[in-house]
């Protein structure tokens, strides 16, 4: 019995450093959400390129997607942070490097998500728009995209959770996100079990939160409209239509 060290879990550390841990989690959220917004745009662009009539655009998009889907987050961020400054002499801040690395990686996933969502929209929808005499842009904006987004949103949510988790590798460039904070505390108290369990818990909590938020967003894109948020947002329009119905 003497040889077995007494396990001494200092769970209070999690509470003591709650401010730092939350700040770390917030940083992770922040980097991930900036990258999410950027990669949605870049992803859509590459999705459209991949669906282009012209082989050259399709080729460029496929190459981009296959390269960046294959690179791990750790490698990508190291390359952006250190590689870029070595080659071009320009230093990104850790925050910028994190956002760029995540955008590069996840825009390739989003490109595929968008492409499959756009292709899943029934062909008749485009035809109806064409037959009505809508412009191509209008068909895309008002007919195809709203339906494609609805299909894509659950996948985008999962990807966002993945992005938050991938920020943990940015510890290597010194981004003060959750794992980085954990490691600093660990260096002082040597409580890896406690701290990494807490980290796991916080990531899971974050995932639940993201899931919750994306469910609301999904409700907004679903039809018939579900959810109080959507009903609240459309109440004026509904009243207007009701007036028209009553008037006629």
């Amino acid at each position: 019995m003497e040889d077995t060290p007494r396990l001494n879990f200092m769970w209070h550390l999690v509470w003591d450093f709650r401010a730092e841990l939350l700040r770390g989690l917030l940083t992770a959220f922040e980097v991930a959400i900036t990258a999410l917004i950027l990669s949605l745009f870049v992803g859509l662009l590459f999705a459209l390129m991949k669906m282009s009539r012209f082989a050259i655009w399709r080729g460029i998009a496929s190459t981009y997607i296959n390269i960046f889907r294959g690179i791990p987050a750790l490698v990508s961020v190291v390359w952006v942070y250190f590689g870029w400054s070595l080659l071009f002499g320009y230093n990104f801040t850790v925050y910028q490097a994190g956002v760029i690395a995540l955008t590069l990686l996840y825009s390739s996933f989003f490109a595929e998500i968008f492409r499959s969502a756009l292709e899943a929209v029934h062909k008749g929808q485009r035809e109806a728009g064409q037959a009505l005499g809508m412009s191509r842009l209008r068909i895309f904006r008002s007919v195809v995209m709203p339906q494609a987004l609805k299909i894509a949103i659950p996948n985008i949510g999962s990807m966002y959770i993945g992005m938050i988790k991938d920020t943990s590798t940015f510890t290597v460039i010194g981004l003060a996100e959750l794992v980085f904070v954990m490691q600093s505390i660990n260096a002082e108290y040597f409580q890896p079990f406690v701290l990494f369990t807490a980290a796991a818990g916080l990531y899971v909590a974050a995932a639940f939160l993201v899931d919750f938020v994306f469910r609301i967003v999904e409700g907004g894109f679903s039809y018939p409209k579900v959810g109080r948020v959507k009903r609240f947002l459309t109440r004026r329009k509904r009243a207007q239509i009701q007036r028209l119905v009553d008037a006629n």
């Binding site: 029934h122 929808q125 109806a128 339906q147 039809y223």
Partner: peptide, 8 residues
């Protein structure tokens, strides 16, 4: 197949 826009 009607081809109404289902989201509207």
């Amino acid at each position: 197949q009607f081809n109404l826009f289902p989201h509207l």
